[in-house]
Design a protein around this nucleic acid. Structure first.
Lengths: 343, 343
DNA sequence: GTTTACTGGTGAAACGTTTGAGCTGTTGCG
DNA sequence: CGCAACAGCTCAAACGTTTCACCAGTAAAC
């Protein structure tokens, strides 16, 4: 194959201006649909721009402070864990669905440790993002004060009580887990357990508190075992529970991957699901419908969750007053993995 | 909460220069570790930069043509499908593992239709990316000539025969599927089938050809049914196969999601896996180990695949001579879903 | 017929960095 | 001693936009 010619010089706003017989300022104005040029010249400029195949150089634009082009997302989880977890990809899809309409792109970074703040600082001070979305909110999250001081426009995914001065988007976890436990109680379960995500995460704490409270109210025996969302630790946690003297007859999981893993553990133990053991997943993805038995789950529209976060971020970036956005409460989708306990 | 002060003015190279008593040029030189300043001044400059908390403004840098900061990735699949498919997130993780070491970020875009070329054009001409990774290569892919003409540094994930002038990174699919079919034949299967991905994809074509060829060589009865990687279509394809007069005793899938779905279909039909039907997945992710029975799979290290692609891209961006990189052939991981057919 | 207001535009500075040409002072060589 | 070579540094232009102050013309108001 012949080396393709790397094409002529990049066409700039200057070229458009020259060809249209106006100044670059006029071109800029026309392209942004701002008042200052007549309708006819605007048309002419736009036509020329189209004809020449002009594309904005956003590096230049962001240097001189114009436009919103990029939002940042940093995910701080071990890379290997991310593959299986459908959550993030769906969340990202949701974000993108909003960005695309605004011709905005997503800058993504996966980090292992706590270098997240530094990444945000580089991005923001480096003029590479116009705003960021913060996920996996911790209790007393150090990112909050750090990013607030930077003046970075951001939206936090997590409960407002943890979000400091930032706009936050969250789901009503407490309510959802209450619904879940009530449901299990209604089926007749008296000993329920929960396998949670990492206790540093804000929503883990919230769910744990609500879980404990509703169980007490209903007079159930309840315990929570900590895991980290991975299949491995989910299995381990499940084994721990099943080996305990008074093993629970129902288990709620903080995501779907762990619930799927638990299905395998139940098989190991020769327990039938849902006969001997009921399982309830969280973050209902297609995963839950692929297993046999299918998994009952707390459904949560992650896609539109991401979209909401992005919308909120645009609100912040365009200086609309901050709001707290409750997306919705996950709702119970009963499938084949939950049933009354055998007596 | 009080509005946090948006912090003082951004600290620029000029501030550093002033404080260190040198010119901005000297600072730039020192920061890039280029020859032109003495060791002592360099030290001084770096110290001042650190002290002042200077961060490079990459918008400015890329305007004046310096440095490699961003690589682009466009994924063109329906957003909803992306959630479940572990492939991309793992692939992205692999890319990131390389980028991070070079302080480079990933610009991501999900598109629905064929607007991908336009996105690349905007990114490249807009000075937002220094190079891109192309995935899901089609036969006669229109992106190849378009991007070649742009002069965009890129790496193609797919077979070199489809990559035009670009460096390509690929896995030896033909070899792998040959291994898979040989394995099934060795187990005693005489009627094998395959559920493929979309036929537009380059690797679908390659796999189909190889599958047909090896089956003929081995004297097997073979057929391929087309699907699109989704659980839904995977199930449908599987049903089609199981309803056919001479139903196959073994099925190979082009990804893992469809194989998992097939497990459910087998259950519907009252067929035991692997007794009545052997299933073999592709792109072995943790998903394959979560099911009961666990799924035999063609393992493929997607993470390092992504890493390789990123490495290759850096090669291209730094003008190292183009090479074709074979990552490796997927290898068979036998688990519980494959066995000799019941007679 | 002068002032006022507005429309439609221009010119130039600014954003923060890189880079190549040029300048200075010291050292080495003949 | 005179000149070349070089290290170490400075100057200023350039990258492509945006924006703000300003100006010319025209129309409306008085």
């Amino acid at each position: 194959m012949t080396d393709s010619v790397p094409s002529e010089r990049r066409v700039t706003i200057k070229d458009v201006a020259a060809r249209a017989g106006v100044s670059t300022a006029a071109v800029s104005i026309a392209l942004h649909d701002r008042p200052g040029v007549s309708a006819s010249t605007k048309e002419r400029i736009l036509a020329v721009a189209r004809e020449l195949g002009w594309r904005p150089n956003l590096a230049a634009a962001s240097l001189s402070g114009g436009g919103l082009h990029t939002v940042g997302l940093v995910i701080a989880r071990p890379a290997r864990l991310l593959g299986l977890e459908p959550f993030y990809m769906e969340f990202i899809s949701g974000i993108e669905s909003v960005l695309v309409r605004r011709s905005c792109s997503l800058l993504l970074r996966l980090v292992d440790g706590d270098e997240e703040i530094e990444v945000h600082r580089e991005w923001w001070q480096g003029g590479r993002v116009n705003g960021s979305i913060l996920v996996d909110l911790h209790v007393d999250d150090p990112r909050i004060p750090a990013l607030a001081e930077l003046g970075l426009p951001a939206v936090v995914v997590g409960h407002p009580s943890l979000a400091g001065p930032f706009t936050s988007v969250w789901t009503e976890d407490a309510e959802a887990i209450t619904e879940a436990v009530r449901y299990l109680a209604a089926l007749g379960h008296r000993r329920v357990a929960r396998v949670s995500g990492p206790p540093e995460l804000g929503h883990s704490v919230i769910r744990t508190a609500a879980f404990t409270e509703v169980a007490r109210d209903l007079g159930l025996e309840a315990r929570t075992v900590v895991a980290d969302f991975s299949a491995d630790q989910g299995s381990r946690a499940c084994r721990t529970l099943l080996l305990s003297p008074d093993r629970p007859t129902a288990i709620v999981f903080d995501n779907d991957v762990m619930a799927v893993a638990a299905l395998g553990v139940a098989a190991e133990f020769g327990l039938s699901v849902p006969g001997d053991l009921s399982l309830l997943a969280w973050d209902d993805s297609q995963l839950c419908q692929l297993t046999r038995p299918t998994l009952s789950a707390m459904r949560h529209d992650v896609f539109s969750f991401g979209a909401q976060a992005a919308e909120a971020l645009f609100g912040v970036m365009t200086n609309r007053p901050p709001v707290e956005r409750l997306v919705h409460a996950p709702s119970l989708v009963p499938r084949a993995s939950t049933a009354p306990p055998r007596v």
